[in-house]
Write a protein that binds this DNA or RNA. Sequence first.
DNA 1: TCGTACTAGATGCAAATGCATCTACCTTTC
DNA 2: GAAAGGTAGATGCATTTGCATCTAGTACGA
Lengths: 166, 166
Amino acid sequence: MSSETSQLTTMKQTAEAWESLFRAQVGVMRRLQRDPEFKELTMREYDVLFNLSRCPSGWTRLNELNEHLLISQPSLSRMVERLENKGLVQRRPARNDQRGVELSLTEEGRAVQKRLGRIHVRGIHDLLAPALDAQELAQVKELMDKLLASLNGDTAPGSGTRPGEA
Amino acid sequence: MSSETSQLTTMKQTAEAWESLFRAQVGVMRRLQRDPEFKELTMREYDVLFNLSRCPSGWTRLNELNEHLLISQPSLSRMVERLENKGLVQRRPARNDQRGVELSLTEEGRAVQKRLGRIHVRGIHDLLAPALDAQELAQVKELMDKLLASLNGDTAPGSGTRPGEA
DNA sequence: TCGTACTAGATGCAAATGCATCTACCTTTC
DNA sequence: GAAAGGTAGATGCATTTGCATCTAGTACGA
């Protein structure tokens, strides 16, 4: 299938692609964090609100939420406690699993998320739009979605070749 | 130049591209952190060593280093102190600026960085290679480098169309 | 040369984080 | 259905983080 050389080349290429990806992410993030409107909530906290806002049913299991974040389980547990005290989220015991906890935004939490979200989106736009045109943005989205899908176990269908199934 | 509609479209596109980018980054990072070999050093700490390893002269100003990281200045100050105590980095006063501090890896620091770096690269490869082929990886690198260049103030030459200048 | 404004790092302190562990609940096996 | 093993989330505790502030050194203007 792949010769030694192509193997090595790919190794270097993955490393370089990741380095660029990582640096770009840090670069954008640094500038977003700088936005004074974001003093109100940590980036990590906003991320929780954002993830909740994306949940169609409105309620998410704590452990599921944790899978989309970079913080540890105990940290999330306490962060949620704080957000609850601020009145931004609410908890309830899970139906099917008595040890589980489900989480959702409160009205206020949803409002805050929307407000910060708008600012956030504007900031992102100001940073990305000058750098990449519409087609390139679409490429970024496509490539990143593909990567994400692969991480999540989908043996990526890609274009043409038949995916082996798990 | 751009109608209202194209403006809105671009706004949505930038947001979507960023969301995918961010999620992919988190997804990869979560898995990398999981690597047991990385208990030795925090991701953030490794990032410092990595950045130092990339500095051609070997020595970097603390404030310059800080610009490539997501942590605050005081946090970096203390992290460096800890890394110094561990014998991984060394400080010296800057030549031209008496208040400044320059930083470099020690022999041991360089060795640790290389060792972890290899593990890191392998992990990255295992995650990215199944997801994206060589051409796609090249696209990722190109797009991210373009984004990064734009963030850093280069009014990107791009291909063809003339960029409006700030 | 002095005085004011600014930048590089360090430090006090409160808050947030992670690790290890704990409790409660679920699942599997016999 | 009882014991053993596993998962969800909470908590004690030491470490790390960030904010505000401080000190020392630089740059600029009169």
